[in-house]
Computed example of a mutant assay.
Amino acid sequence: MNWYEKLNQYFPVEEMKSKEHMDTLLKEKGSVYYKDEGPYHVLMYAEFPNFTFVDYLFVSKESRGMGLGKKTLQMLKDKNKPIILEVEPVNYEDTDTEKRLRFYAREGFEHASSIGYCRRSLATGEENSMEILYWTPGGETEEEIFEGMKKMYQDIHTYKDEQFYGESYDSVADVLTFQEEEKTDVLKPFSDPVEK
């Protein structure tokens, strides 16, 4: 199974870019967009001067518990710049969303609870709300994370979108919002110490 098939099996259709889109990013944005893969993982990420964005991180079920996800994130943390990523809101019917949030909480990520992120999937036409998580080595603010997300959305997510999907994604102003009053922290239930 190639890297794209692995991602496609794991991620919902509304979150997936087309293979053509990702191949083009790797080729035409090769100084920013990268693929790191091994037998048990696939990491797609964009590295900008002020932050790194994790586009997709897949770790196979066979290797869970071997520390592969932690090692892969550590490679990005070693770059000593903020790491930003998108996650699905927790769905207690789907244990993977809970495991994912627990993993990122353990890795020191925070929830950018002042950032709203909802984009329409060109694959399904449905609105898709996501939460933004981030890790910072230097205490960067949610405003800085918000600016990073806007850059990533414009430079990566919507790159040549009409060419690949026949229509454009919504504008960054329609997709990303910043509210002073924060939402509930989605990582809090996973980062509190367990009571005995």
Rank of each mutant, 00 (worst) to 15 (best):
Q74P: 01
L101I: 06
K79T: 14
L133M: 05
R120G: 03
S129M: 14
N80I: 03
S113I: 07
E93A: 15
S129F: 11
D94W: 08
E127N: 09
E127C: 07
I84D: 00
E127A: 08
S113A: 15
W135K: 13
T141H: 08
P89T: 08
Y92S: 10
K77S: 02
H111N: 13
M130R: 12
G116A: 05
E140W: 05
R120Q: 14
Y104E: 04
F109Y: 08
E140C: 01
W135P: 05
G138C: 09
Y92P: 06
G108W: 08
E126V: 11
L76P: 00
P82A: 08
E110D: 06
K70C: 07
Y104A: 05
R119Y: 14
T97K: 02
G139N: 04
T141Y: 12
E142H: 10
I132A: 11
E127P: 12
V87E: 04
G125T: 11
F103Y: 07
L76E: 03
M130D: 10
R106S: 13
F146G: 10
S121A: 01
K70D: 11
E98F: 02
L133G: 11
Y134F: 15
D94V: 13
G139F: 04
E142D: 03
N91T: 05
K81V: 13
R100L: 04
W135A: 12
P137F: 07
R106T: 14
S114I: 07
K81E: 08
R119W: 11
Y117H: 14
K77V: 01
Y134E: 09
V87H: 00
I115D: 09
P89D: 04
N80A: 12
L85V: 03
K70G: 02
A112Q: 04
W135H: 13
F146L: 13
E142C: 07
M130C: 09
K71H: 11
M75Y: 10
T97F: 03
G116T: 14
F109D: 03
M130I: 07
R120M: 10
A105T: 04
P89L: 09
Y134R: 03
G139L: 02
E142T: 10
M75T: 13
S114Y: 03
S114C: 14
E140A: 04
